[in-house]
Structure formats: C-alpha cells, structure tokens
Design a protein around this nucleic acid. Structure first.
Lengths: 402, 402
DNA sequence: AGAGTTATTTTACGACGTGTACTAAGCAGG
DNA sequence: CCTGCTTAGTACACGTCGTAAAATAACTCT
C-alpha cells in the first residue's frame, strides 16, 4: 500500500535539512568550492547558499579554505569540509585479518591496525574483541577523542540483515545468525554501520574509485568467493532484507559443478579463486597452498591446462557479467577483489568480450567495464564511507547525541 | 559526480507539490477516505490535509463521496479521486494484436478496441495507424473529449530507450531503432508514455494485482519470449538506458541451447513458450500450429516426453527465478504472461521448489512467489498506469498545457 | 583616486506546514 | 427542546524557508 505512495517530505524544515545535505555533499565530493560555484552546482539561489553555508560554518562542519584571486572583482572565498569536524572508523573483517582504519572527513587515513585471523578460525567473540581493541588503538594512536567519532563501519562477509542487531549469515565462516550489532553494542557507544564487505567496497569504488560519477553500477568483488555491490540512484541497493547482490550464487550452468553453498552451477563455483584453483588441481594435481600466491602462479603459468582453466573462468565470468548487464542495464561495472584484479589485469579485453557475448548488444554498449582502482583497503575504506554517508545525510544530528 | 549528491529539493513550493502528490496517491490507492484518515495515513497535520484537499477539490481532481456515520460526533466526509477528472489510454502492442483501452481515473474501462496483427507482419506504420485510430475510436465511443485525456501509454516488445523519441529495438519484430515516439507524435498531441510491455504489465500487477503492497518486486512475463519488470522503491527500475529487466537473455546454461537472440544458454531458450514447444517437437515431431493452443495441449499431455520437457522448463525457470532472488532480494516475485500463468497454475509448487533449489535460503524465505492476478489485459492496463503515474506525480501540470 | 567587476550578504516578500483555538455536526439523555 | 459530550474539519497567528532585488564588500585596472 504505502509502496507507491512514496515521498514523505513534510515540513518546511526538511527543506533546510535537504539543502544542507545537498550543499555538504557538493563540498565533500566537489572539493573546495566558493559559494558562487555552489549556487551553480546545486541550483540553489545565492542567498540560500550563503544562508546555509553560514550555518555549516557556525557548526564547524565546513571551513574557509583560502581565496581565489579574480581578474577584477571580489575574490571568491573557498569553502571545504572541515576534515577535523569528525572521524570515521572503518573495519574490514576479511578472510585472513581484521583491519581497522581511522579516517578524518577528508578521507585521510590517520591510523590503522591489523589483526591476523587464523584461517578457518573465525570465532565471533574474537573478531568482536579485535574490532573493539582496534578502534581503541587507532583512536589513541591518532589522539582523536571518542566524542568526535561519527561512527564505526564494519564490512563483513555474508548476508547482513539491516537493523540494530545486524544479524549476519556467513556459512563460510560458520556464522549462522550472528548478531554482530548487538555484540559490538555491548562494547561501544559509537553509532554502528554493519554491512556486507562487497557492499562497502562497492561504495568506496563508487565514491573514490572506478565507479565515480556513475549513478547505476555494479561493483564485483572476486576473491576466494564472489560478491557484488549493486548501485542504483547513486546509492547501495540492498533489496527487501539486505541481501541483494548475491551474485556469486546465480546459476550460470544449470546442473553444473557443485558450489560450496550446496547448489550446482553457481558462478562462484567457476569464477571464485578457490573454485578456479580446485578446477586446475583436477587437471594438474598438486598440493594445496595459500590461495593468493597459488592464484598468481596460475596466472603466470603458461601451460595449456592453466590456459584452459583460465579461459573457462573468463567465459563464466563473462556469463555472469552479461546477466548483470541484461538484467540491470548498469552504466558501469567495476571488477574488483584481489582475484578479480589479477584476472582483470591480464584478461580485461577477454572478459569484456565474454560479457559482450553473453548480453544484448544495446545494454552492453552502454556499459563500461572497468577494473577497480582501489587496493586491498577498499573494504575498510568503504566501511568508513557508510559512516560518512550517514553524516552527510544529517550532519546536524550526527554528533549531537554523543 | 552528481550521483552521490542526490536529493535536489529546492523551493518551498516543491513541498506543496510533494504533499499534494502524497495525498492524491493516498486517495488513489487507499480508496475513499476522510480527511481525518488521511492525516493518519500521510503523517501530515490536519491543517495541511484540509488545506491541500481544498486545493484538490477546487481543481476538481478529487470529489466528496458521501459521509460515514459516527457514534456520537461529526460524521466524516469521504473524499475520493474524481474518476472523470481525466482519462488515460493504454495500448498493448502484442504479438498478435494491437489493443487500445480507455480508462478513467477510477481505472474503469470505458471502451476498448482490438486490431489483429498478422503474425510475423509487424509493419511499424501499420501499428502506428492502429494505435492512433484506436485512440480516436475509444474516445468517440465513450464520448470523452480529447482535452481531458491525460496521455497515451503504449506497451511494446523489446528494448525502449527513454526520451521523446522512444526508440525501440525489437529484433523479433524486425524493429531496429524504431522511433515510435516520433512517429506517434506526428499524429497526436497527447502526452506519450512508451515502455516495454513487461514493464507496463509489471506496474499493473504492482498496483492492482499480485504485486500490491510490495516495494521491491520482480514481475515475470513468460509468453512466447520471456520478459521482466523490476520494481525498486515501489517504482519501475529502468537502469541506465531503459533496458533493465532483460531477464530472458540471462545465461542459465553456459554453452547451452541457441537462443533466438543468437547467444547460447539463455533462459528464454528454455522457458519461453516458443522454445519449450521447439524442445518438445524435437522429442515428438509434429506440425507447428498456433502457439497458445499448442502450449496448452502440451500441459494437458501426460506423456513422459511432455513431462520431461515441462520438468526441464520448470527447472530452468527456477534457476532464473533463483538468480533474481539472490541478486535482487525482492519482497515478491509475480509470475505472469500467458505461458507463465498456464505453467504456474499447474506447477507453482514445483516452480517454487526449483527457485528454492537455485537460491540462498535466507533471501528465498523472504520472497513470495505468486501468480499474476491480472488477465491478458495487464499490458494495456499497465500502459495506462504509466499515464496515471505521471498524473499523480504532478496533477497540477497534467491537464494544463492541453 | 575612481570606475569597473565580481562575490557575498541583507532586506523585503510571499509561500508553506504546524499548533491552537474555534466551528460544525452529530449523539445520548433528560 | 435543551444540555452536555464527542468527533471532524477549519481559521488564524506564528515561525521557517527560499528567492529576487538591492546593497555591500573586496578586489583590479587605469
């Protein structure tokens, strides 16, 4: 019922909040800008820009940043987001480590710390302790007072149900219905933002990487497994219960190989690094070693067996990408994740060709397929962007309750 | 750049427009309601409801609709959308006919007409003439003056690029870059809304059928081919260039059967009625007849061959649905289209089971898979809803220019 | 120093939504 | 018939908002 009714703007004060947000986003993404430029960028009148920026200045959210000389007129005063107004903590709960980063509002990294995770031992309590200890550590290391922290963002594997409990289902970790939000809440007062790691990485690429400027995109995270972040209208698309983007388990070969999820013919069973290495070892038996070096070695291997496995991988990846293109008609697709980047660096033209072969001509032409530009920090960085996004949405309330 | 900046509310008048829209949608979808009920439904204050409804009443957009007795107080005055404020024309350009319907704002059908299309002869000029003649006919038949028509909605097959030209690419029809919008514009002044038929059907199911109340949904149109309407935030999702939802050509069996699109392993090559019949005829040779009776006969056929073909169809359909569930995490999936309804009536439990087998447990559980509730008129009816949606969005401007 | 130019801010104004007080319109009971 | 009582809807004063126009600020150029 409520569905098609949509927009729920109410009072005239929402207007102010919205325009404040618009201006702040323009400054955050558009770098330093003068009030004059802001009127052009936002479509607001000069008076409103002046008015709202005065508020933002008074609150300390933005600051003046020098002037720009003019050729015969009053010089423009540049404005920018005050990097020290607040800070965001981003956490990446990965397969082999928990990484904690502290960023200011200029997205400068102030401190970081890493905790190694023994493979296949992902005790939830331990991870929670790492996150909380890491947050304490980076804050004290950078000398940032806790009350200026806008929040703690966490990128985790698996399905995350939105809400304060942030219930996680990550079979690979043995996490079944883990309420990470509740567990973290017991140890910190900070606002929490928990989401799937592919989604946080996706927002990082969208804001600062290969997804810049796209309002409709898909960011693929190909690592040991396969994840995805769907972007619609410039924001992460989460679906009805937060699990949208489970690309890795789409069926690309009905009745095909068995996936670790139990089904058959999943994309992940063909394109995930673990599965690729499995397929290779079926052809050329060898001992199991660490995944990343083994995958790199496979890419360097010029044997026909390696070539066959990789060609197959590209083929199925293309099928998966083609389905994304057909189904979602994205403006851009970003290929990321450590395995995705390794594959892409060598095979991007082939991957594009495979995607073309598995999609309709028109949407394919409208889609740019690019490699991710952010390194291995993208997940933690993206987790911090969740925090920052909340701040941009309502900068007035952000630090009030603390 | 502009992507993450989003909301662009500007002036205080947008507020009014938005609240007017909210109220009007509440009345359109929530049936007759008193002002008092509207305050609860919309969250607006009683004063604003009174104020805005006064505007709407003055404009004739809504009307009073009797009273409701009370148990000891002033009785409520019911308000409803004035069905005769404006009218919408919906057109379905189908495989075998062009259907034109005239609806009032109460979504009552006032008139309709059909033009048969000889199969495989879909001359664009002819279709345009049918549409224009049909519009004239239904208007004169119902005695509706042209200046009270809110627009002409058309559901067509294939990819539709948004914009006034409404360029269509429908290989099955031999339509390559046909600017239907331009062609229609030459023959009528009415506001035009051209979109893919699966999308129009989807919005019809969303508004009045099995999709009611869902804000995230996928409506599948399984006919001779396979189409889809994706719904996000209660509205049709179109992607970057309008072609989102090309579900029929997703790869479900990499390297599998050749599809009429030229690729291999497309869902449509397994689940579209044409392909199903082809597969059956490979097992049991027979002459080609009309598709719908042949498909119905196949469903009635209890031979092992028929059973095998149908089981396979259900299997692949389930793979396609499972991918939708994984990727989009919809609240609801509606199975429609003539072949989809025939299949679903007999095999809905099996289809659900196949979808379950091809998706992750959690999102599957959150998704309701239902049969479409609207009959063969859904495409035309949905085309009219495009018009109505435009009216609800800005009822003030809707009939002004005419 | 004065004219010219461009960037902000101030001012006056009209539009909006809200809360409060008020009016309208019924019922129950004497 | 009249007196409370209840509920629905409206009028009005108020504070907020964004805007256009006018004013001011802060430069450059001559």
């Amino acid at each position: 019922m409520l569905a098609m009714m949509q927009a729920r703007r109410r009072t005239v004060r929402d207007l102010r909040r919205g325009n404040r947000e618009t201006l702040l986003r323009a400054l955050f993404f558009g770098g330093p800008a003068s009030r004059h430029e802001l009127t052009a960028q936002t479509g607001l009148s000069a008076a409103t820009v002046s008015n709202v920026t005065a508020d933002l200045l008074a609150d300390g959210v933005i600051a003046e940043a020098g002037q720009v000389e003019s050729d015969g007129g009053r010089p423009r005063v540049l404005l920018r987001v005050n990097p020290d107004y607040g800070y965001a903590i981003g956490v990446d709960v990965g397969e082999t480590h928990v990484r904690v980063e502290l960023l200011d509002l200029g997205m400068n990294e102030l401190a970081r710390t890493d905790y190694a995770l023994r493979p296949a031992r992902h005790d939830v309590e331990l991870v929670v302790r790492h996150i909380l200890a890491g947050a304490d550590l980076v804050l004290s290391e950078a000398g940032v007072p806790r009350e200026r922290v806008l929040g703690l963002g966490v990128g985790v594997p698996g399905l995350v149900e939105p809400g304060p409990e942030a219930v996680i289902h990550a079979p690979t970790y043995g996490w079944q219905g883990v309420a990470l939000g509740t567990l973290l809440r017991a140890g910190t007062e900070l606002p929490l933002f928990v989401d799937n790691g592919a989604k946080t990485m996706g927002q990082a690429e969208l804001w600062f990487g290969a997804g810049r400027g796209a309002s409709t995109a898909a960011v693929a995270l190909v690592g040991s497994g396969v994840g995805l972040c769907l972007v619609t209208d410039g924001g992460i698309y989460r679906g009805a219960s937060g699990s949208a983007g489970e690309w890795g388990h789409m069926t690309v070969a009905a009745g095909g190989r068995t996936c670790r999820c139990g089904n058959r013919g999943c994309l992940e069973a063909y394109a995930g690094a673990e599965a690729v290495l499995d397929r290779y070892r079926e052809l050329v038996p060898g001992e199991e070693g660490e995944e990343e070096p083994a995958f790199a070695a496979l890419l360097a291997d010029r044997s026909p067996e390696a070539g066959r496995v990789l060609a197959e991988t590209v083929h199925y990846l293309g099928a998966g990408l083609g389905t994304l293109i057909n189904l979602l008609n994205p403006e851009r697709i970003v290929l990321g994740g450590w395995a995705g980047l390794l594959l892409g660096r060598r095979f991007l033209p082939e991957i594009r060709e495979a995607a073309r072969a598995h999609s309709l001509a028109l949407p394919y032409e409208r889609t740019g397929i690019e490699l991710g530009l952010l390194g291995p920090d993208a997940v933690a960085r993206g987790a911090a962007t969740l925090v920052v996004d909340g701040f941009l949405l309502d900068s007035q309330r952000a630090l009030q309750g603390v």
